[in-house]
Design a binder for these strands. Sequence first.
DNA 1: TATTGTTATACTCTATAACTATA
DNA 2: TATAGTTATAGAGTATAACAATA
Lengths: 151, 151
Amino acid sequence: MPAAVSELTDHLGYWLRIVSNHVSYAFARRLSDKDVTVAEWAMMRMLFGRGPVAPSELAMKMGLTRGAVTKLADRLIGKGLAAREEGQKDRRTQTLRLTARAEALVPELAAAADQNDLEWFGSLPDGERRALERILKTMAARLALTSIPVD
Amino acid sequence: MPAAVSELTDHLGYWLRIVSNHVSYAFARRLSDKDVTVAEWAMMRMLFGRGPVAPSELAMKMGLTRGAVTKLADRLIGKGLAAREEGQKDRRTQTLRLTARAEALVPELAAAADQNDLEWFGSLPDGERRALERILKTMAARLALTSIPVD
DNA sequence: TATTGTTATACTCTATAACTATA
DNA sequence: TATAGTTATAGAGTATAACAATA
């Protein structure tokens, strides 16, 4: 007896994607008030409160290729939110840092992220929210091992 | 006393996005063996085992604009996986259907989706998997109401 | 006028690969 | 040769807006 052809909704991956997309989209709309994208926020938060950081470090920590980091950094620089500087010792290296304006903006963006989380997860019963957090973090830990090395 | 600036990892939305992206990416890699993308799979599954379907119906059910449906359909047609036909009564309407090759392919893609789900969620304890499913479906139901109407 | 679908355009996100400068 | 970063190119995914045909 042949198994039935499974439907989209038969997969947890489907529900995960649907919910994640909506939550991220809602967050993107909040950020767009400040003319910042989700990827830009992520990079800005990585740079916040730190000195100059090498693009290669960002690539590693954000799971992006170096090319992607360059492009994202270009956009931040174009918006006056980041600056590029030459490395001192090794002249191949560059560093990225936030501008003063960006340093002032990050707390607002963080507040937007807090609000978004509250909007989407705030009404979950405490037990469920904790369960969700535990499951996601467990899975994230596992996929950090499995993950295909970028670049 | 000012609240600390929250970090990326302080948000459930962050973990949701990380995990969802990895699961979807892994699925995309499976599908790419068959030269199909995740969005194409979703549309194919919507069309599978059905007669001709109007693009507008697909747009509604998939949460896409009509323009996005046209573009996705164009790609399926280009790959020989779907066909476009004129509507009968109302001559403004078009319909989409799968080709025979696509009908034969969908069960393979469904099996790939099953495998992917098994790989990523199969090792969760039963209770956790059920909890995750329940939480995601509850959230999905809620956002179906909240969701910004497309188009 | 309203509706169905397509087309044109644009932008984000991401990758791969070639290239430059330096080590 | 190897490494850090940039540049060039490409493609998925999605949107908005203008348009054509039809109702």
